[in-house]
Simulated assay, not measured.
Amino acid sequence: MRLLANTGFLFADLPFPERLAAASAAGFDGVEFHDEVQRHDASGIAAALDELGLTVGGLNIRMGDSFGCAALPGHEADFIADLTAAHAAAVAVGAGAIHVLAGRGAGDEAVFRANLRRALDATDRLILIEPICAEAVPGYHLSRLDHGLELADLFGPRVRVMFDWFHAATELGPQNAAEALARHTALIGHVQAASCPGRNEPEPEVLHRFADTGCTAAGLEYRPLITPADHLARLRAAGI
């Protein structure tokens, strides 16, 4: 399984461009981004990735204080601008997926669905939607896994759920989260790993669950307690 360093969480003490070299030195196969590329020289980031031999799994649309705005009424123009910037960044660095964040606040489902349709028309990238549990981000519009799965089923294969173990296990409990992962594999486009409840280094069992469902890559999005290189070595020793 290819393991991707989420640069929004890992190596956070380093300036963004330096996180790429740190991920390579630690032994990661690739990276995934929050919205850092949109705030840097994308061509320079692409050149660094090429030199380091790192691939990019995906990146987020602009997050801001509201964690995106796709479901927030009155922000349609902001959403289009954010999507345009995310698409350009994804093309520049070779990211195959864009995570469209719904936003927190007075969200509206009709607005969210209309913006997802706009996203499908505006980019050729896979659109990921991530259910983010209420404990982590209170008021986030897409807080339940079943809601995300419903939308993925409705919109078809270019909209898929980003299944984050921390959020799913917090919402449903570990056993129910594992069962949902196995049951709905076809609607899941990407997986991320962190422990629950601490959101620290994920145990190898979590990655084995992903591999058992056919996942070939996983993003590691956690708050490190040990160096990412040491944790990655432990995962590899466990057969990941």
Results as ranks from 00 to 15, higher is better:
R2G: 02
F9L: 15
L10S: 11
P15A: 14
F16S: 08
F16L: 09
P17A: 05
R19N: 06
A21K: 11
A22P: 01
A23I: 05
G27K: 02
G27D: 08
G30I: 06
V31W: 01
H34Q: 15
D35M: 10
V37Y: 05
D41E: 08
I45C: 03
I45L: 04
A46P: 13
L49E: 02
L49H: 12
L52A: 07
G53K: 02
L54G: 00
V56T: 14
G58Q: 14
N60L: 03
R62T: 15
G64T: 06
D65R: 13
D65T: 13
S66Y: 03
G68I: 04
C69R: 11
A70P: 11
H75Y: 13
H75Q: 15
H87C: 12
A89D: 10
V91W: 01
V93K: 00
G94Y: 01
G96E: 12
G96V: 04
A97Y: 00
H99E: 09
V100A: 12
L101E: 08
R104C: 08
R104T: 05
R104P: 00
G105F: 06
G107E: 06
G107W: 02
A110F: 04
R113S: 02
N115A: 02
L116T: 01
R117C: 03
A119P: 01
L120E: 10
D121N: 11
D121P: 00
A122N: 06
A122C: 08
D124T: 11
I127R: 10
L128K: 05
P131Y: 07
I132N: 05
A134M: 01
E135L: 14
P138N: 01
G139Q: 10
L142G: 07
L142E: 01
L145K: 03
L149M: 09
F155Q: 05
G156A: 09
P157W: 00
R158Y: 09
V159L: 05
W165P: 01
F166G: 08
H167R: 05
A168D: 08
L172I: 05
G173R: 11
E179C: 06
E179D: 14
L181K: 13
L181C: 06
T185K: 12
L187E: 09
L187P: 12
Q192V: 00
C196I: 00
C196W: 13
C196E: 15
P197Y: 03
P197S: 11
G198W: 14
R199L: 13
E205K: 13
V206S: 07
C215S: 13
A217H: 09
L220I: 12
E221L: 08
L225V: 15
T227F: 02
T227E: 14
L235C: 01
L235G: 07
L235Y: 09
R236L: 00
A237F: 03
A238W: 04
I240V: 15
